[in-house]
C-alpha cells in the first residue's frame, strides 16, 4: 500500500515535470510565432515618438541578443540558461528579466492574493448563507445582486469605481501603487499609503471574483444540504450554524478549493486589464507592454513565472483535494 502511494506520487511528480517542459517549450515558441520584429518600429501610438533603426542597427541588435541564430539553437540556449536559473536579458527594458520580475511581483501578489482572500471569504460566507436561507428574502436579494456584480466585466467595474470613488468623491488616489516624492514618512505612513492605493484595484478584483465564489459555494452547499446526512442532522435538531460548520462546509470544500486554486491563473489575466485601468505597476501591465513590443525574453520570463505559480497551485489543490476526500486517492489505485 505505501509502496504504491510513493510510486503514485512519483508518477504525479513526473506528470508535473512533463507539463512544465511542454509549457516551457510553448513559452519559447509562442512569442516567436507572432509576426513582427522586436527591433522594428515603423509606427508609434498616437502622438508618441519612435526611434527608427536602420537595417544595420537591427542586424547588430539581433546578433547581440542571439536572435540571428536558428530556432533550435536559440531553444537549446534558452533551456540551458533556464537550468542555470538565468531568465535572460530583456530586449526592451534593458535589465535582467529576473530583476524586473522581482520588482514587479510583490505588487501583483498584493492585489491578487488580497482579492483571492477577500473574495473567497466573502463569497463562501454569503454563499452558505444564501444556501441555508434558500428561497427566502435574503437569498432572493443576494442572488441577483451577486450575479449582476459577477457579470460586470472587471475593467468596466474598475473604471466605474475609479470615476465614482476616486474622481468623483476623491476618496482614493487615481493611479499608481504609492505616493511618490512625498519624502520619508515612516513605516506606518507608507503602509497606509500603499493600502490606500491598492484599495480600488483590490476591491474591483474582489467584487468580480466574489460573485463566482458565491455561486459556487451556494451551489455546493445546496447540494450538500439536500443530502441525507444533513437532513438527518436537521432531524436530530442541530442548528443551522452547526450543520453548516460541521457537516456541510467540509463536504462543500472540494469544489471550492479546486476553484480557488484553478482561478489563480485566470486572475493574472483579469489583473492585466485592472492594473491597466489603475496604472498599477504589477505584472499585468508588464505583460501587456512586453507582448506589445515583442520582448521575447521578458514574455518568456513572465509566462514562466505565471505558469510555475499556477502549476504549484494546482499541485497544492491536488494534495488538499486528496486530504479532504481521501477516497479519491484510493480509487485511482484500485482502477485497472
Amino acid at each position: 500500500m505505501e509502496m504504491k502511494a510513493t510510486e503514485q506520487n512519483r508518477r504525479r511528480f513526473f506528470d508535473y515535470l512533463f507539463t512544465l517542459f511542454i509549457v516551457v517549450s510553448l513559452n519559447f515558441a509562442l512569442p516567436r510565432l507572432m509576426p513582427g520584429d522586436p527591433f522594428l518600429y515603423l509606427s508609434g501610438d498616437h502622438g508618441e515618438e519612435i526611434a527608427r533603426f536602420s537595417t544595420d542597427q537591427i542586424d547588430a541588435y539581433r546578433h547581440q541578443y542571439g536572435l540571428d541564430k536558428p530556432w533550435p539553437a536559440q531553444y537549446a540556449a534558452s533551456l540551458f540558461a533556464l537550468l542555470r536559473g538565468d531568465l535572460g536579458y530583456s530586449i526592451y527594458y534593458n535589465k535582467e528579466v529576473s530583476t524586473i520580475l522581482l520588482n514587479r511581483l510583490p505588487w501583483t501578489l498584493l492585489l491578487v492574493l488580497s482579492a483571492v482572500f477577500f473574495s473567497t471569504v466573502i463569497g463562501c460566507l454569503l454563499g452558505s448563507l444564501s444556501a441555508s436561507f434558500r428561497g427566502k428574502a435574503l437569498d432572493r436579494l443576494l442572488y441577483p445582486l451577486m450575479i449582476a456584480v459577477a457579470e460586470i466585466p472587471a475593467f468596466l467595474l474598475g473604471l466605474m469605481l475609479l470615476f465614482f470613488l476616486a474622481a468623483g468623491l476623491r476618496l482614493f488616489p487615481l493611479s499608481g501603487a504609492m505616493t511618490h516624492f512625498a519624502g520619508t514618512a515612516g513605516f506606518w505612513h507608507t503602509f497606509v499609503d500603499i493600502a490606500h492605493h491598492a484599495f480600488l484595484p483590490v476591491l474591483t478584483l474582489t467584487m468580480v471574483r466574489t460573485g463566482a465564489m458565491y455561486l459556487l459555494a451556494r451551489n455546493a452547499m445546496t447540494t450538500v444540504l439536500a443530502r441525507d446526512y444533513v437532513r438527518t442532522a436537521r432531524a436530530k435538531g442541530l442548528s443551522t450554524a452547526r450543520i453548516l460548520a460541521r457537516h456541510s462546509l467540509r463536504n462543500a470544500m472540494v469544489p471550492i478549493v479546486t476553484r480557488v486554486f484553478l482561478s489563480l491563473g485566470g486572475l493574472v489575466g483579469g489583473a492585466i486589464l485592472v492594473e491597466n485601468v489603475f496604472a498599477y505597476p504589477g505584472l499585468g501591465r508588464l505583460m501587456r507592454e512586453s507582448v506589445l513590443v515583442h520582448d521575447y525574453p521578458m514574455i518568456q520570463g513572465i509566462f514562466l513565472l505565471v505558469t510555475g505559480a499556477v502549476l504549484s497551485a494546482n499541485f497544492l489543490a491536488d494534495c488538499i483535494y486528496r486530504r479532504l476526500d481521501p477516497r479519491i486517492g484510493l480509487s485511482t489505485e484500485v482502477q485497472p
Partner: peptide
C-alpha cells in the same frame, strides 16, 4: 485521465490573454 489532466494543466497555466493576442495576430 492522466493525458486529459495534463492537457488541462497546460491550458490552465498558459496565460490566456497573451495567448489570445498571439493567436489573434496569427
Amino acid at each position: 485521465d492522466r493525458l486529459t489532466m495534463r492537457l488541462i494543466d497546460i491550458l490552465l497555466v498558459l496565460p490566456d490573454l497573451p495567448v489570445m493576442i498571439v493567436l489573434a495576430a496569427f
